[in-house]
């Protein structure tokens, strides 16, 4: 099967769905690019080139460049979604949600419930997150935890190209508001991706590797970091079960609990900040629902509680590394309930 990058997988998803359904449109800043310029139209194609070339096939009526006004762009997409279109609103960086949060939080997310189930809002906001590009505090945050906290929003966090395509097609066909988070550092990661359209249901975790000693739950780019750690730990006979939840809302609690019931140990790896984050959310859920199975405390490996720094030395230290994950796993392997109460 052909290997494709996340970038290509995402583009295939958008193109296939735009061909399939004339109501699917792309709205965003520079999704085509070049409007009102002296050079070529359509060469920009979004911050990561995902929508590059689409304007040639679908025209500027369906690949819509907007001014750099995120409230109007996301709000417009919400309004269009409530009135018959299936917009994919491209928000270059999730950090920009700061200027348009209301359009998701108070508008799009609320329609279905607030209007008594009589409205559907098939809106996808596709955005980019994550550190690693030396882009510093305003272009590197994760923020998926903020949206996971909002009822009425589904949060999709693909870690590989196969999932990216299937989850994006699912998102476009979904009748609820979906925020689709791509980590900027893994756009070129390749995987076997079918040429056809396919969907992956939300709330179905991927068991990346099976193991018996420790469960690791990791999100987005951290799935790869955790997998590196697991490979290294395997050499020392420590068997890791790695779970990629794929979506943080809905969350596949069942798969996580089942795994912890088998291993009795849990490490959560989350590039977000530590307070009120996904790691804490999963830890709380497991502590409540699988306490009986835990042989040791849950360890959370997260970024520190600081803005994302600029200097490479600082940023590298900020992002959870495979070494840190390994350390956490080795630590959790040495801990037990007795040791905790004794210490």
């Amino acid at each position: 099967m052909p290997k494709k990058s996340i970038r290509i997988a995402l583009q295939e998803a958008v193109v296939l769905e735009m061909r399939r359904d004339p109501n699917v449109i792309v709205i965003g800043e520079d999704v085509a690019g070049g409007a009102g310029c002296s050079g070529d139209r359509g060469t920009y194609g979004g911050a990561m080139g995902v929508t590059k070339g689409l304007i040639e096939e679908f025209g500027d009526e369906r690949v819509i460049d907007t001014p750099i006004t995120e409230s109007a762009l996301v709000g417009m997409a919400a309004g269009a979604a409530a009135t018959g279109l299936r917009p994919i609103a491209e928000l270059m960086f999730v950090d920009f949600m700061g200027v348009c949060f209301d359009q998701v939080l108070n508008q799009a997310a609320k329609f279905r419930y607030m209007f008594g189930g009589k409205a559907t809002t098939p809106l996808v906001v596709r955005t980019m997150m994550g550190a690693g590009f030396r882009a510093a505090a305003q272009h590197s945050q994760m923020l998926y935890n903020l949206f996971t906290a909002v009822p009425g929003v589904k949060c999709v966090i693909p870690s590989n190209a196969y999932d990216a395509k299937g989850l994006l097609i699912q998102a476009i066909r979904d009748d609820d508001v979906v925020i689709f988070f791509n980590h900027k550092a893994i756009y070129d990661f390749e995987d076997e991706v079918p040429d056809e359209a396919y969907t992956i249901p939300f709330g179905e975790a991927n068991i990346v590797r099976e193991g018996e000693d420790v469960t690791i739950v990791a999100f987005s780019r951290m799935v790869h970091t955790a997998n590196d750690a697991a490979k290294s730990l395997e050499k020392d006979g420590i068997s890791v079960e790695l779970i990629d939840p794929r979506t943080s809302s809905p969350l596949d609690e069942e798969s996580i609990i089942e795994s912890v019931e088998n291993t009795g140990r849990l490490v959560i790896v989350d590039e977000g900040t530590p307070r009120c984050g996904l790691a804490g959310d999963v830890a709380g859920m497991v502590a409540e629902k699988a306490f009986h199975a835990l042989k040791a405390p849950i360890i959370q490996v997260t970024a520190p509680h600081t803005p994302v720094p600029f200097s490479p030395v600082l940023e590298d230290a900020y992002i959870p590394s495979a070494a840190k994950v390994e350390e956490a796993v080795r630590k959790v392997m040495t801990m037990s309930r007795d040791a905790v109460s004794a210490s």
Partner: peptide, 12 residues
């Protein structure tokens, strides 16, 4: 913003 979205929907 919602109204321009509905307008876009009609236009598209």
């Amino acid at each position: 913003p919602l109204a321009i979205g509905a307008a876009l929907s009609h236009k598209t």
